[in-house]
Write a protein that binds this DNA or RNA. Structure first.
Length: 220
DNA sequence: CTCCAGGGGGCCA
DNA sequence: TGGCCCCATGGA
């Protein structure tokens, strides 16, 4: 038993050895993590950084700053991330919900499950975005699953992650890894880093083959 | 030119 | 539930 546990830790060690700590989430404040989490939906981080800088320059990277702007003006500021109309709406939805719930301080005291439900109730906040916020902004142990996670697990032939439910994969990690915020943060960041370098969609995944070989050679 | 990026919601069978 | 479609800019 717990073969999976060792395998998951092994993959983590290999990735960490290969790439080093990724230092996620790149943000100056927890609130900036929330904003970035929405802006980066199906969008490269490079473009998100630009939008964040523009928001900072215009002094609207705050709850009040986002509230004072109407959707149209906010959309103009974040144009470079794409989907700017929906994302502007989502940012306002998020801030309005934060205030309704009593602010981040209050939310941070909730249990992880309750916090997750409140975030998921906000239009524009799905599971991946909610979990990214919970892990990287509120620093509670929850494992973030994304397309890269599915792709890597599938190509390692560990399981057919593409057909699994989001929460099924999430709990698989959470039940087979120490409940450690730093570990979860780093693990997800490393999966993304690795996928971006080696597991593009079209080419065969050389990177996963390398990892798989390393895992096979490693002593369990 | 095409493909993709640190997704999510609405609609319909 | 599962499959589509839409949102849209910017880099490779």
């Amino acid at each position: 038993m717990k073969k999976l546990e060792r395998k998951l830790m092994n993959i983590y060690e290999l990735l960490l050895q290969e790439y080093g700590p990724q230092g996620w989430w790149p943000a100056e404040t927890p609130f900036e993590v929330l904003v970035g989490a929405v802006l980066t939906q199906n969008t490269s981080w490079r473009n998100v950084e630009k939008a964040i800088q523009i928001m900072k320059k215009n002094r609207c990277l705050s709850e009040e700053g986002i509230l004072k702007l109407n959707v149209t003006d906010l959309a103009k500021l974040i144009k470079c991330v794409g989907f700017y109309n929906v994302k502007a709406r989502r940012l306002k939805n998020l801030v309005e919900a934060l205030i309704k719930y009593g602010g981040m301080e209050v939310l941070g005291k909730l249990k992880t499950e309750e916090l997750r439900l409140k975030l998921l109730a906000i239009s524009g906040i799905g599971k991946e975005t909610a979990d990214s916020i919970i892990l990287y902004a509120f620093e509670k142990p929850i494992f973030v699953v994304d397309e890269y996670t599915r792709r890597i697990l599938t190509r390692l032939e560990m399981l057919d992650a593409r057909k699994m439910e989001y929460d099924e994969i999430r709990t698989l990690f959470e039940e087979n890894l120490p409940r450690d915020v730093r570990l979860y943060k780093e693990y997800h960041a490393l999966l993304v880093r690795h996928a971006k370098e080696h597991c593009r969609k079209k080419p065969r995944c050389e990177g996963c083959v390398l990892i798989e070989n390393a895992i096979c050679k490693a002593k369990f």
